[in-house]
Design a protein around this nucleic acid. Structure first.
Lengths: 342, 342
DNA sequence: CTGAAAGCGCTTACAG
DNA sequence: CTGAAAGCGCTTACAG
């Protein structure tokens, strides 16, 4: 019932507390024989060093913080965050670090959490999601000196390290594929405005379509939710010269878009091709399964975590470009029934 | 850059560290005027008490642990966990508690994490998910003396507190509804075998169908994934006297089942009615939207967190029955096209 | 109402 | 190679 301390181990082993600390932490200062004996005793009585005491003397919390800025219902439906967290967590626990999670209402609350965490020495560093253009969190983090890795980019992370993926290149692959199938009226339903990757994709879509000679390229803003994705789709499909293909900025909106097409009697992929970002099991759950741009999100999270630990250790950490999303063609894309009259 | 400590506040205020501690923690021992002055100074220099130092003297980590036992890809797709976590976290952070998350591979790893967390005094208590029949985690937790609240029941949580919901009653509502619509051949695709609520639902399904005179009630086991849900559905719909209605143990399998029906040219709801457990935005994302049994999962998580904090505070905490899931009829259910010949 | 001091359980120079 | 001791930043009896 009473949890053993380092003093208990020292007493049983007949050595000082210092010796136990050296033995258990692999430091020089004890003979190999003594080390083994101490380790055996520690294991036997189930000793685990108090994380608080370690933190207090070692000045390291052995914990990393991650905030989530989404309402409960929205958080649940997007596979992205859980996959990211799962990769982050696996890397952290391998190295003995804990992951501390907090849900926040907005960027101000998030900044307050960072200040508190750092002040309380509760975390050694943080992972920052949903990077925005002119993100207010970046200068605060820099000023605090709180080690951080931004998930997103390229750029816009100030002096903080970041991990990112080339969305423009992935988007180009999708557009080229649709053009090769014969599509000329291509639309895009975008994610939350203000987020860096949304803006990057929006700009890239315009440029790519122009370069590849797609005259009727429209990009409509949305917010990642199924409701908004459905609404945007209804509007697009109700227009006079409706698109023959739509690219969605996430899986949830793409699935919602597919439902709207079915509801309107528009057959996918014959009458409408659909491409989703954020390939996930969700894309394979529906009928037809969705053609999607995907990459390994748990691995992305693992990269971010590894670099954060390096930053915490004081190593110089710069930007890191992760793999580019690849297109997985599935049943939701096909040549358009009637080629563009132009 | 240098983070302020209680000594800095004391120096600026011209009082002892003890006085600062009393003032900031709302303890008696300082005059109201002094308290205000100390609070103002603390705010001004951005003081936050070190959580490690508090933990070391106060013997409380001010943190709660939660383990997740699922592979990354599966974790992402199930809205349940994120919704639960979100409710848990909101309650905890309101009370100044942090949530520590760890992903584990199996029950043994999970037990090892509990032992370590408790030994390290990293958490004050844990929330236990996925309760099984004869769950090995329960006696370990009891033996350790680690405050815990089990999410699941009724029963099977030994001396540990738990929160649960009456699945048998919810299932009965769904079956009665299908019978009222005219269904007589009703099937069920179950969740992971061994989990308590799966077993409760399986037993209840048999009893309810018998009592209500549903002769052709089949229950097939599955595992919550879309793949298995699809496979089970294909088998059911390929049988000679295929069911006219299927109840799925979660939203993911129900959506997969809907896709299989579409793929096989079986029209929902005309030829087949579908009911899902775990109502979530996912159920409203597909076409037709799924009739589902749902309840407020974030609130469920909040209840569990509240009771865990009570248990940590040493208050007696017993079982708590949360609301029963309610049926939300949507487009996936209707009277069967051809009533049962019997 | 306030101050001085012990103690929480570690880590880490500093002597032997 | 090993022991004794200081110190991390709090909280909390214990005296004044």
């Amino acid at each position: 019932m009473k949890r053993p301390t380092i003093a208990d181990v020292a007493r049983r082993a007949g050595v000082s507390k210092g010796a136990v600390s050296y033995a258990l932490n692999g430091q020089p200062g004890v003979s190999e024989a003594t080390r083994r004996r101490i380790q055996a005793i520690a294991r036997e009585i189930g000793f685990n060093p108090s994380s608080a005491a370690r933190a207090l003397s070692g000045a390291s919390a052995n914990a990393v913080g991650l905030t989530l800025c989404r309402p409960a219902r929205v958080l649940g439906i997007e596979p992205f965050f859980m996959e990211l967290i799962s990769g982050v967590e696996a890397t952290l626990s391998d190295r003995g670090y804990a992951l501390t999670l907090q849900v926040v209402a907005d960027p101000d609350a998030e900044i307050a959490v960072y200040r508190r965490w750092w002040g309380e020495r509760r975390v050694d560093g943080v992972l920052v999601c949903d990077l925005r253009i002119d993100d207010r969190r970046v200068p605060v983090l820099e000023e605090l000196g709180l080690p951080a890795v931004v998930i997103g980019g390229p750029g816009h992370s100030g002096g903080l390290a970041n991990v990112w993926s080339d969305d423009a290149a992935a988007l180009e692959e999708a557009v080229r594929y649709l053009i090769a199938l014969g599509h000329r009226r291509i639309a895009r339903v975008g994610g939350l405005a203000g987020l860096l990757h949304t803006e990057i994709r929006s700009a890239a879509f315009t440029v790519i379509c122009e370069r590849l000679g797609v005259a009727d390229a429209v990009s409509v803003p949305s917010d990642y939710t199924g409701e908004e994705g459905a609404r945007a789709t209804r509007r697009l499909l109700s227009s006079a010269d409706r698109p023959t293909a739509v690219i969605y900025d996430n899986d949830v909106m793409a699935v919602a878009g597919l439902s709207v097409a079915q509801e309107m009697g528009i057959v996918v992929p014959t009458d409408l091709s659909i491409v989703a970002w954020d390939d996930s099991p969700l894309c394979r759950l529906v009928h037809p399964p969705l053609t999607a741009l995907g990459r390994d999100i748990p691995a992305y999270g693992a990269h971010a975590a590894r670099r954060l630990l390096a930053a915490i250790a004081g190593e110089p950490v710069g930007p890191y470009q992760d793999e580019t999303a690849r297109l997985s063609p599935r049943g939701s894309t096909a040549p358009p029934r009637r080629p563009h009259p132009g």
